[in-house]
Simulated assay, not measured.
Amino acid sequence: MLRLALPLALPLTLGLLLTACGQESAPTTSIRPAMVVQPQPATAAVDSYPGEVRARFEPELAFRIGGKVSRRLVEEGQRVKANQALAELDPQDVRLQLEATRAQVAAAEANLNLVKAERDRYKTLFDKQMVSHSQYDNAENLYRAGLARVKQVRAEFDVAGNQAEYAVLRASQDGVVAKRQVEVGQVVAAGQTVFTVAADGEREVLISLPEQNFGRFKVGQPVTVELWSQPDAHFDGRIRELSPAADPRSRTFAARIAFSAGKVPAELGQSARVFIAHAEQVPLAVPLSAVSAENGQAYVWRVDGNNTLKRVPVRLGAYGEKTVPVLEGLNASDWVVAAGGHVLHEGEQVRPVDRSNRVVNLAAKE
């Protein structure tokens, strides 16, 4: 029986082997991984500038006369009231000038009394025709000159009295001494700033703008202000003032930001940050490695929802160090292949991954 079964089993086994070989499937093609990114703004849509809270009005106070400072009555940071004395000059010189002017007034008044009596005497004699008309006119002119002299020295006396009062520097309004630039014994000139007072009332933020971007700022432009002491609060503001000239040392332009709200909980000297939005639309940008070109036409590989590639022509801006602006051809929601575009093909299916080699589900992110 075994001898009869072997000739029959051998052809059957060979037939099964041949059938199995004929049904073997072709090797599967692996899907290429591709690192994908989304276009990002080429520049920040909002610029931020650090600043300091200042008073709306900051008068610079100075003596109206020159002299030596004899007393300093306030310190920097001290609150002062209107008309409060801040500093005094040595009054000796102005007092001597006042006394000299007072003596001139007394002398002029005595001379006026003399020429007046002389004029009255000559008038009586002239009425009796005992003196000539020219003699009377001479007495009259002397009287008028004496009267003018009295008016002159009295005005000079008033000026000297004012200067004696100017020896005391007083606050022009309520506020805080923001800056002190004088010491006892220092000789100051008339008009030289010795105190800066931050007046009570409105508060502003002082910032510095770079000269390369100064042209795109204008008075009245809306901004947003954030105080470091209140990071979760944002206050609306506007550019109230732009300096017409750059600072000679920093080459920046000073700008004052006024709060739109009436009263803002901002204290003098607090740190702040001002956010100014770009007026024009900010273009998108992609990495330099994502851009390819053929026949002078730049293009990128966009990954559609089914993970297939589509070649998209784009119009580019000025190349940067790492990225290039895309002026036309892409949307912010698109996904593009970040590198290796020269080995890709239209309609090819890829496996999107991020920079950490994690699979990106584009359908879930749409």
Rank of each mutant, 00 (worst) to 15 (best):
R149L: 14
I65N: 00
M35T: 15
S356Y: 11
P7K: 15
A255N: 09
V176W: 02
Q23Y: 06
D354Q: 07
Q38V: 06
T19Q: 12
P248A: 00
T101E: 13
S333T: 13
A290L: 04
P33Y: 06
A9H: 02
E75C: 10
S250M: 06
L309F: 08
L242Y: 05
E321L: 14
P210N: 11
V205E: 03
P222I: 06
K218S: 15
E202D: 05
T29K: 01
W228I: 08
E140W: 13
N331Q: 10
L4Q: 02
G237M: 10
R95S: 02
L309E: 04
A266L: 00
E183V: 07
T19E: 10
S30K: 04
G220D: 11
G320W: 03
M130H: 04
I65G: 02
Q270H: 03
E294F: 02
C21P: 01
F126D: 10
M1Q: 10
A246F: 04
V324M: 00
A155W: 03
A363V: 11
R102S: 07
A82W: 02
F214W: 10
V197R: 05
K116C: 07
P244Q: 01
A290V: 08
L142N: 15
F195A: 07
N361A: 14
R144V: 12
S356H: 09
A44G: 10
V182R: 06
Y49H: 09
I257Y: 06
A106V: 11
V69W: 08
